[in-house]
């Protein structure tokens, strides 16, 4: 059971959250202007790194805020949480 550090509520059990996948994948400003390939890239293509990963979480059973987190996909360690639309703070190397 991960303990997810909600930036508002503090650490809570993973079961209170919804996972939102890779962070910083913006909805295209003008979807109609996207080529089929570009649009498919937005819909379907995501990174899947071994190591540190910037991802989205939603505290659905708590404060109901979306936030971003940098988490290690091997150790599951959370290095940082930060607000949407901001860049991740320094990531451990």
């Amino acid at each position: 059971m991960l303990s997810v550090p909600c930036p508002w509520c503090g650490p809570r059990d993973e079961t209170e959250f919804r996972y939102g996948g890779q962070a910083h994948v913006a909805y295209p400003a003008d979807p109609a202007a996207c080529s089929d390939a570009e649009w498919a890239g937005y819909l379907f293509m995501r990174d899947n790194p071994k190591g540190w990963f910037a991802e989205r979480w939603f505290h659905s059973a708590g404060c109901r805020r979306w936030f971003n987190a940098v988490r290690h996909t091997v150790t599951y360690e959370f290095a940082a949480v930060y607000a949407p639309f901001t860049q991740p703070p320094g990531v451990p190397s």
């Binding site: 939603f58 659905s60 979306w66």
Partner: peptide, 13 residues
């Protein structure tokens, strides 16, 4: 409700 909150918070604040 989750869907609405997601778009309001992460795309169209």
């Amino acid at each position: 409700l989750d869907w609405l909150d997601e778009w309001l918070q992460t795309e169209w604040p």
